[in-house]
């Protein structure tokens, strides 16, 4: 299938400073690509060239097969969701009016706008009564959800996010990341997310692009970057010594579980773990309990399953 976004030899220069230098990669339809790099690596500029908030000095960007330079920037951006760390809600407008911004720009009839705003508040788990509030009356996490609702208002096929969860505290951040994955699963939106946090990139990205000093060092599935870093800087970013644990964090318990023998001694008494948890968490539980296998909870109605220390270790081993 055609990729949703193609970034083709894109560069951006400011005077004699090259901020983005000949970057090429593609984002498959419905995938999340996480762009990681330090601040100043050019990752935000790269993102802003996809919706033409920044014009490339060279190269081109295709979204849905069309060159983004073909249509005026504002028209293009109404079809592409955009979420930033600072959220940037209109402080003088209610949550409802904030979320309704793009549908109104597109000239939707009043009733359709109202229906859509209600739908989005539901989707993001915000009570509909929030529609009448002003952004200042919401918590940071709620504001960020409104920001995402606003970005998704016109049902854009593509969502660009620049450090969207950077200002949230760790617990809320984790929840926001899970919500994003759930949203993507439900809507099939193609997402490019810029972050400086490798854990966030590994948790969210189907693919990861590593930027340094304007150049794209490597782009591919997380496991590939962990197992075969193409550049010393990528290896350093992946923190070589911890990469076995990072690999485990990518795999869910459900994927590594094996059918358990119901007659096995003490199956019921063994420590348990949810099928949605990662193998990294499973390993931690095993180490803590001093056990060598865990009973797996869920999905409901399935046969009893277990995850063994042996299976976990096999997943973490160098190939």
């Amino acid at each position: 299938m055609d990729p949703m976004i193609v970034v083709d030899a894109v560069s951006r220069r400011y005077g004699d400073r090259t901020v983005v230098d000949g970057v090429s990669f593609a984002v498959p339809r419905g995938a999340i690509t996480a762009v990681v790099g330090k601040s100043g690596s050019g990752k935000s500029t790269l993102l802003r060239m996809i919706n033409r908030l920044v014009e490339p000095s060279a190269g081109r960007v295709l979204v849905g097969g069309r060159d983004v330079a073909e249509e005026p920037g504002p028209m293009l951006r109404r079809r592409i969701g955009y979420v930033i760390q600072g959220i940037g809600l209109f402080p003088h407008r209610t949550v409802f009016d904030n979320v309704a911004t793009v549908p109104r720009l597109l000239g939707w009839p009043r009733q359709r706008v109202a229906d859509r705003v209600g739908e989005l508040l539901d989707l993001l788990g915000l009570p509909r009564s929030f529609g009448e509030r002003y952004p200042s009356a919401l918590s940071g996490g709620e504001q960020q959800r409104v920001g995402i609702a606003r970005a998704l208002a016109a049902d854009p096929p593509v969502l660009l996010m620049d450090e969207p969860f950077g200002a949230l505290d760790p617990l809320i951040r984790r929840k926001a990341q899970q919500d994003l994955l759930a949203l993507r699963a439900r809507l099939g939106t193609t997402v490019v997310i810029v972050t400086h946090d490798l854990d966030e990139a590994l948790r969210l990205g189907d693919r990861i692009a590593v930027m340094e000093e304007g150049r794209l060092l490597q782009e591919g599935p997380p496991e590939e970057l962990l197992r075969r870093p193409a550049h010393p800087a990528v290896a350093a970013l992946m923190e070589g010594a911890r990469r076995a644990l990072r690999l485990l964090a990518l795999v869910s318990v459900g994927d590594a579980a094996e059918p358990a023998d119901p007659a096995a001694v003490g199956l019921a008494g063994r420590p348990r773990i949810d099928a949605e948890a990662s193998l990294e968490e499973a390993l931690s539980v095993l180490l803590w309990a001093g056990a060598d296998s865990l009973a797996v909870d869920g999905p409901p109605g399935g046969p009893p399953r277990e995850v063994t220390l042996r299976a976990i270790l096999a997943r973490a081993r160098q190939e």
């Binding site: 293009l76 930033i84 940037g88 209109f90 793009v102």
Partner: peptide, 18 residues
Amino acid sequence: VPEDVRDSAQGMGLTPGQ
């Protein structure tokens, strides 16, 4: 006017006049 407000407004597809 916060830069984030301007940036997100532009990012949503408002023209400079809007």
